[in-house]
Design a protein around this nucleic acid. Sequence first.
DNA 1: TGTACATCAGTGAACGCGCGTTCACTGATGTAC
DNA 2: TGTACATCAGTGAACGCGCGTTCACTGATGTAC
Lengths: 228, 228
Amino acid sequence: MLTQTAKRAAGRKAAPSDVDAAIPLEAKLQPTQARAQDTYEVVLATAGEMLRDIGFEQLTTNAICQKAGLTPPALYRYFPNKYAILKELGDRLMAAQDDAVIAWIGAGGLEGATVDERLAKSLAMHREIIEITLRFPGGAAIGRALRAIPMLQRLRFESRDMVADRFYDAVRPRYPTVAETRLRVAMRMMVELSYAATEMVVEEPDRDADSLNHEVCLLFALYFESFA
Amino acid sequence: MLTQTAKRAAGRKAAPSDVDAAIPLEAKLQPTQARAQDTYEVVLATAGEMLRDIGFEQLTTNAICQKAGLTPPALYRYFPNKYAILKELGDRLMAAQDDAVIAWIGAGGLEGATVDERLAKSLAMHREIIEITLRFPGGAAIGRALRAIPMLQRLRFESRDMVADRFYDAVRPRYPTVAETRLRVAMRMMVELSYAATEMVVEEPDRDADSLNHEVCLLFALYFESFA
DNA sequence: TGTACATCAGTGAACGCGCGTTCACTGATGTAC
DNA sequence: TGTACATCAGTGAACGCGCGTTCACTGATGTAC
């Protein structure tokens, strides 16, 4: 059973921009039978947990198989190597976050009569993203892997740039005097720093998580005011 | 020949907070003779370059030795494993950055009569940090490793928290009405997001580097205004 | 509705490679008198 | 100032382990008639 997010991530796999990678990252076969689907999912779920527990450097395909109760050839039926597994996890996490942000923009998250109102909305969104990441098995570790592994960096950049474009589209009409280049750069910076803020909270969730969220949202709210 | 930064990094090594790590990260022996000092440094320099070229996952001690023109036992004389090398590189990069920021605060970087003046000062500092990172062999890759490798994360957190404390000390008298807890959280957030902004620029140095710097500094300048 | 066959899914066992690491040793440098 | 000795620095060669990966195979599921 695929979730909406998983389906979307699967859809991304065919993107031709990945074929130039030296190491293949795409799934070899898509599972067709229900049993195979389970295997595919259990590999990902197990990898996520192990990523959280031991980090992606210690993560090995053999260890995933052992913990998942599979033999290596079963894993290799679907994934050419461990990076393909990380890529799929990364795709799904990014997609889950992106979907939430895009839905939030679509629901008027950026609109609000007063600064306080806009601040409250963005705070709710930040909390939601953190919630999504914490609930995702190995979410924090996947975030780290997306930054650290060169072949996954592109994924992160593409996700960020796409979200930044949506922000641009949403705020463009509101600040007609700001130059396009500047507004685009500003949105890209804001999205990147929002990611960083999310990671900061999920890496140390017991350290002033909500105060941090609050300050981050205030930071951006004041910045947005300056465009008006 | 040790630079100031290197000396300071070496001084940190004795910190007792590291002894509880399962994998030893401390240098086994400090080189005494000049020839040994060269070996120590060439290992670090080579590791930095390779980190930049292939990433820390592909980095192996054997490969470092081969590229550096050494045999493995020479490396193992000083470093117990590859993480110790990464830790030393991380120590040095963090120290170089921290030194610059602390010097900047000490020279009145946070002071200025107008917003524009303060903005110009912080812009100069951000540019300097980026310059330091780009000039450091494998600087961007070391930054990634500091985020991604669990045993190096602490290093990054300690550096960030220390710098945040310095910021706190510097701005505390200026904003007497702001609660201590809040001001500390705010400074920690600001330093973390500054790191993220630096990494954003060094990862994609050709993409609007200076515009990004400018927006980041504006972002923080406006935020600081709100405390007054 | 049952049977035969094709395809899908997963197993058991092992492979070669290269990784981190070490042993026994030689050569270089420093120092005491 | 030279010699003897101690210590420091680095080498050559190899080790065992576990990693990613594959081969030949069995069992499960789906489908045509």
